[in-house]
Design a binder for these strands. Sequence first.
DNA 1: AATGAATGAGTGTTCATTCAT
DNA 2: TATGAATGAACACTCATTCAT
Lengths: 214, 214, 214, 214
Amino acid sequence: MNSRSPGLVRDGSRANEVAILRAALEAFGAKGFHGASMRDVARGAGTSLSNLYNYFPAKSQLLAELLRLANDELLARITEAVSGAGERAADRLRAAIAAHVAFVVDHQVESLVALSEVRYLAGVAREGVVAARDSTQNIYERIVADGVRDGEFRTPYPDDAARNIVSLCSAIATWYRPGGRLSKQDLGEQHARYALALLEAELPPARSGKGAGR
Amino acid sequence: MNSRSPGLVRDGSRANEVAILRAALEAFGAKGFHGASMRDVARGAGTSLSNLYNYFPAKSQLLAELLRLANDELLARITEAVSGAGERAADRLRAAIAAHVAFVVDHQVESLVALSEVRYLAGVAREGVVAARDSTQNIYERIVADGVRDGEFRTPYPDDAARNIVSLCSAIATWYRPGGRLSKQDLGEQHARYALALLEAELPPARSGKGAGR
Amino acid sequence: MNSRSPGLVRDGSRANEVAILRAALEAFGAKGFHGASMRDVARGAGTSLSNLYNYFPAKSQLLAELLRLANDELLARITEAVSGAGERAADRLRAAIAAHVAFVVDHQVESLVALSEVRYLAGVAREGVVAARDSTQNIYERIVADGVRDGEFRTPYPDDAARNIVSLCSAIATWYRPGGRLSKQDLGEQHARYALALLEAELPPARSGKGAGR
Amino acid sequence: MNSRSPGLVRDGSRANEVAILRAALEAFGAKGFHGASMRDVARGAGTSLSNLYNYFPAKSQLLAELLRLANDELLARITEAVSGAGERAADRLRAAIAAHVAFVVDHQVESLVALSEVRYLAGVAREGVVAARDSTQNIYERIVADGVRDGEFRTPYPDDAARNIVSLCSAIATWYRPGGRLSKQDLGEQHARYALALLEAELPPARSGKGAGR
DNA sequence: AATGAATGAGTGTTCATTCAT
DNA sequence: TATGAATGAACACTCATTCAT
């Protein structure tokens, strides 16, 4: 124990853990969970294959941790955004979607991996991740229910709307490329409007929404 | 089919090919492309491992053929549905979505695999599949453009609407379970309304759309 | 299938299986079950590592098959020897021990491996092998019981005698070297006399038994 | 133990060494030398993996020390027992066997490991252990030779008798379970009689030796 | 004496694919 | 067309051991 720089060793350890997680993320993102090997991860993390196992006891736990982190972060961001939004359902929805879209754009690979590799999780790990995902969707469901109750949303299909809104936001991860036509904020506004329209909310008249003309 | 015809061998051959494709579909659907092995496919098809290679020269071509078939079929169904629909964009959209949703429900595994395993296609195979997928999306884009031109759709974001509509339809494959609350037709109507709402079309007042109440 | 030399392929297959079993026997004998690797076995069998798995699905099954063969053969030899022996218990014991010792000498490595590596067998395989071993010991127990009943054996401890006789015979595998002082037959006679003495049978006066002097 | 004494550190050290040896014994006993890992030992000893190497420079030396201790203890016990016994060979044999059997029962795992894992010792360590084992057997050989010289033992095979007597005693480790039919003393008497009978000594008429009836 | 991190060789096993028939 | 045997590379993971502290 280095008594003069407390935490340094642990920090080094943490740093390694982070490097491994980052490498795993890249590997799983590029080749998929089964397509990526622990050797890929080790190479990406700049460590030896066997040392990986000092940090994560199994490949599956690497995925589990990755998804747990991503889903928790997403949930936290949306929760916070909603808590800071106004009373009206439309406002809360706008806040949620802005946070959601921002997360997907900021963490595209995490989002992609969370979307496409959950299926390879098993057991407790799966349940935890699914729970976080459900929590996220629940936020939308509550907003939708409130909006319907208050007469803000008039969709005849409120029960399935939340899921579809989540789908729309998640799907961004599958095609987004940085530097595209729309900025992160633009994308957020766009998706908020898509969502509100889908819910059959009252909308301000369309003006010159970016991406409108060709 | 005709046991006297000289085509019998070919038919047997065809039968085998179909069995192999079906087995590959199930395997890829259950475990993912990289998670499923050629042995899994052979077992599922009831043939020997090595005989697989008499029909498909590589695992990747199994996936390619699978995706080609699925995308072509989807494209054909939507194309036909649209061609038989009315003049108005909303009508054509309804027809397209009905066909689309029906395909996803009828061929859920195909849809799921097409959604999640395209990434493992490379080279020409990929291009072919991507082309078919683009053709499908183009149909929606044309409808959207027409609707906007005719004043039916008032969304400020017409350029990205088609992609999102496709997303909504495709996403059904990720959660649908036969025998659920909504029938195939219900789902089609629901998604058509979601899409039209998203496009900010004029909509009939919501009545008692299934799934509305609890 | 080669229709002109039926069985050739299977024979080749059999030959390979035998070569693998032989190599496994040598490897397990030399280094123990856990000390020997499948690569050792493959090298010894003159085939590739992966091809081993076309014949035996797991290392443990190699051991299981080895032990099954050895124990069955031993049981068969002793059974046959006893069935061809006289009525008197001493005669049957002599026959059993002669066969037993001959087997151990003829198949020293098998005997050694059967003795020291059974513990690494698990599940059904273990039960099968243990059953065969018990059957062998049962033969001795029956002979002992008969001899006691007939007054041939006067040991006060007949219940544990059979196990100890088996021990004496098995132990040969741990020290025997071909070309030693005693021939296979000598060893058999010696152990028969040891066993009869242990059972406190009436014995002919000792003459010049080999190994008596120095 | 004595917290004030300067020997505390050494005692702690000793305590650790003992814990490690005990853990190694259990691990090797349960899984065999090659089947047990240094991690198993560390876990069992309640210390870290790397700290093991402060006490034993290699896995093999753990085994060596274990076997040395066991064989030395056995040798010491038998030596002492014999030295306190009478003049007659039969009496010395009885004493030796009583001590031998008691050791095997008291230290079953040590005995088992000594029996089955010696083969994995190499070099000097092996020689030391083999020497101790030979010393033990030599005691028996001397007794046998004396008994033969004095006419107490009339076996025609005196040269191999000692080894077999040792075998009989060692074999107890392979099947003994505490709480069985025979006590430690019973087992000792039983094996003494087996041994004397095997040597063709004059024996008192069998009475009701435990384990005789059913 | 004690630790956690690290390593390189090695483990049993499976992979997609090819070969001979 | 169909098979079983074969292969070499790769897989996830564990090993005994060492290093820095």
